[in-house]
Nucleic acid binder design. Structure first.
Lengths: 231, 231
DNA sequence: TTAGGATATTGTATAAATTACACTAAAGAT
DNA sequence: ATCTTTAGTGTAATTTATACAATATCCTAA
């Protein structure tokens, strides 16, 4: 059989965005409530079809912007899901993207009536999602757990200024295990990627902790030189 | 602007397979010489369009089988390439797959006249490839270098029975750096994933080395229990 | 038969990294 | 003033990583 004798088939092609945030001690994910069938009223990852004249990465940014109001968000490709029956209305292949953002730094403001609203939900307890979005989320969560062990991506999820305890709590939540405080601090500080600020926490009813910020310049330099940062 | 007002656009959708092998001390990749335009006579990754009634993983296996004669090859998804201009004849989004096989265990035997022939080429010195396949290969090679550091995938590329020196040479070729022999053996054997056979190399003009085989059962058990195998 | 060439095999001492573990300090609340 | 809560800090023991070289075995060729 010769391949070219077969009919040329077409699929719809979409992107879905898994956007993680961290707030009030919990890992969160950005979801929209669907306003239309299929899966009307279900929670879903922000996603939509890719135009023929845009690259996939661009499409991911455009779709996220339209559905949530988030702009200029760094996203990396996660995985492509293309099971024949993943969409009830026909073949739709979707490329999932993965992103980490500072919740407080962005406001949610969807342009599209397609989504009722975009909101943060705790990853820990979620109702069932539309389509195969549960599966996509699981893949993204595993990627996050894996990635945080060798790249200092935790800083993406925290405010510009943060305490070491906040950073540790983030790691504990993502990795789902307790971490020794002294060893964690020793290790994290040994990377030399934190700048200690002349500033302390405010409005806490206990000893205020020092604030730190992430040294992005130094990180980029070290990364270029092939350093890695295993926790 | 409402998304649903826009015309529904269609793209072609393909898979491409990056199949690595190891032979005569070199890392090799399976390529076909294209028999048709575009990129007639160029070397290319085995790849073709996905049918609407098959999952992407299935498509990768079918396409590889048709173009090279290789069947039942384990493949994992690598990355999706979808730049608007990656294909000169229109928008084609492609999912790249990644595979490691034992060269000697398979014979190449393409069914399709689409490819002149499928052959192994040394990764070290390659002429330019068709489309963006150079870029795909680079991504795959990086994935291989990364993966071999924490998963014992080297065994996939060697014959059933192999010597520790062969294994070390494979690691050195892939990682592009020399490795200390004693430390390498210590480390590899400490995983407990090798079975020492009562057998030695034959037909070598020097001291014959012991042969080992990979303990796949034990590997699967340990993997299930969450062990990792960092080199 | 023997000497030489090639690769296989093995251990140890040192340095570095990881782990386990508990008390004092600071700040606000009562 | 004292209580509560979280911040901040060091060391000893263990494990892991690294650097390094001599002997063993087998084949080849003189």
């Amino acid at each position: 059989m010769e391949l070219n004798d077969l009919p040329k088939l077409h699929s719809d092609f979409s992107v879905d965005c898994v956007v993680f945030g961290f707030d009030k001690g919990e890992l969160r994910i950005l979801l929209i409530e669907r306003a239309e069938e299929p899966f009307k009223d279900f929670l879903a990852l922000p996603g939509n079809l890719v135009y023929d004249n845009e690259n996939i990465d661009q499409a991911a940014n455009r779709v996220l912007s339209e559905l949530t109001g988030l702009n200029d968000v760094y996203m990396e490709q996660l995985y492509t899901f293309g099971d024949v029956n993943r969409h009830p209305q026909g073949r739709v292949i979707t490329v999932a993207y993965f992103s980490l953002i500072k919740v407080k730094k962005h406001t949610l403001n969807p342009l599209s009536a397609y989504a009722k609203k975009a909101q943060w939900f705790s990853v820990a307890d979620l109702q069932p999602l539309a389509f195969d979005h549960q599966q996509i989320l699981e893949k993204a969560y595993k990627r996050l757990q894996n990635k945080i062990r060798y790249q200092p991506i935790g800083f993406e999820l925290l405010p510009e200024k943060f305490t070491l305890s906040q950073l540790q709590q983030l790691y504990e939540v993502i990795l789902e295990k307790p971490i020794d405080k002294r060893n964690f601090r020793k290790k994290i500080l040994s990377f030399g990627l934190l700048i200690e600020l002349d500033e302390k926490q405010k409005n806490v009813s206990h000893r205020a902790a020092k604030l730190y910020k992430f040294n992005k310049t130094r990180y980029n330099n070290l990364k270029k030189m092939g350093f890695s940062f295993e926790l």
